[in-house]
């Protein structure tokens, strides 16, 4: 299940890149999930837990991964924490939905992310500001729009 809180959220970890640099574990980088995400987002190959082959930057350490990649790995490996998912571009949206299919995760969004319009989300998505479940972007959009503007919370928190 994916829970989304729109707007400023005190308990969310805002600077996910800095946080990742401190807390990531070697085993995260060599996991099947991380390899797939790094291949997709960074267009890079994991060589070892300390080394990733980037077609642009050469061999880089995990701290040089894209901000969106770092946030996805944090969501996957620390689902008990809430992360600022506005560090993720739209190309991360499918991965967020995929994580939510196997883990309960809560994310904080400070912009409107496009989760895709071709089909329903395929996973239960709840807007925490209203405590309402949404099935697709057409249902998510008015809520995102409203709560980002008002920064209101009338729901589950």
């Amino acid at each position: 299940m994916l829970k989304i809180y729109f707007g400023d959220m005190e308990e969310a970890i805002y600077n996910t890149s800095d946080y990742f640099d401190v807390v990531y574990e070697d085993a995260w980088i060599t996991s099947t999930f991380a390899k797939a995400v790094i291949k997709d987002i960074d267009k890079s190959e994991v060589l070892s837990s300390h080394c990733i082959e980037s077609p642009v930057l050469g061999q880089i350490p995990p701290v040089s991964l894209a901000g969106g990649t770092k946030t996805l790995l944090l969501m996957y490996f620390e689902p008990e924490n809430i992360f600022n998912a506005s560090t993720c571009g739209d190309n991360c949206a499918k991965w967020i939905l995929e994580i939510a299919q196997i883990k309960d995760v809560t994310i904080n969004l400070r912009h409107i992310m496009d989760f895709g319009r071709e089909k329903p989300f395929g996973v239960e998505v709840m807007v925490l500001n209203s405590c309402q479940t949404v099935r697709d972007m057409s249902e998510l959009l008015p809520q995102a729009s409203r709560f980002l503007r008002e920064n209101a919370d009338e729901g589950c928190l």
């Binding site: 267009k43 930057l57 894209a66 901000g67 969106g68 990649t69 993720c88 571009g89 190309n91």
Partner: peptide
């Protein structure tokens, strides 16, 4: 030696966004 950015800033506020992994932080 590996990467080059070339662009023009036209006014006081410019925003860079878009997909992850495109080189904004770099």
């Amino acid at each position: 030696k590996r990467i080059k950015y070339d662009f023009t800033i036209n006014r006081n506020i410019t925003i860079i966004q878009g997909d992850s992994g495109t080189g904004k932080t770099t």
